[in-house]
Amino acid sequence: MMLDELRKIGVFIKRDFHIMLTYRLAFSAMFLNMVFSLLYFILFGSMFGTRTPTVLLPYGGDYIYYLLVGSIGWGFLWTVMNATSASLRNEMMMGTLESVMLTVTRISTIVIAYTIFGCLMGLLTIAIILIVGFFLFGITIIGNIYAFFVMFLSTVMMMGLGMVFGGLTLWIKNIGNTIPLIQNIAMFFCGVYFPITILPKILQPIAKFIPFYYSIEGLRKTLQINSSLSEIYYFITILVLLDVLFIFLGLFTLRKGVVKAKKDGSLSFY
């Protein structure tokens, strides 16, 4: 039983690759777009010249590097999250969710498969940014095992959040439209494009209540040579706790969402 469900994850991912290949233009446009975003960061960063803003000192001082790590991390988080939550919405809209639900497949398998596919896309994006960044602009970001852990734990957290939104979509059809808003508000406090230390003092503590803060700040810490292990473990521990919380919430919302949709007869309604 369990083994079948694991094999099905592969089946879903294969399907998504096949579908993606039919969207060649959109796909190439997306990557070209990323190269241009990269160019923007380089230009932003170069405005500062050799001067180092004091707020960036704890992060090594290089703004281009700061922007890159922030935007790569942030982009990855939301790629995973969107892949997960948009899955159910798209399949409901297309009408294929009912066909899938007619087979003996768990809803969590469907959603986990989408997360993994999103994760693969996110990694592909990162690889392209790193390659282009290195060859065109001579930037290097060297990862390590801790950075990998932070990324992995963040993926699991975003999967949980994706499940929450996926479940809520079955409930409130267009909840997905609120995601960009949440994303933008959260970005304010997560140190993506600027360190939170530039925010007014009274706003700064809010960051501690935003889960994504631990992903981005954690990622920065693991990539810095001078971070202490205890600092890194602090972020990893919190991420582990957040994972447990979000996965639990996600599975719960998803299950409730399916029951609700089956009661309302809205599995294929939009």
């Binding site: 399907r15 096949h18 579908i19 297309m94 009408g95 294929t96 066909s99 294929s268």
Partner: peptide
């Protein structure tokens, strides 16, 4: 018609 993946 809605039960199928049109892009497969």
């Amino acid at each position: 018609t809605r039960s199928l993946y049109w892009r497969l």
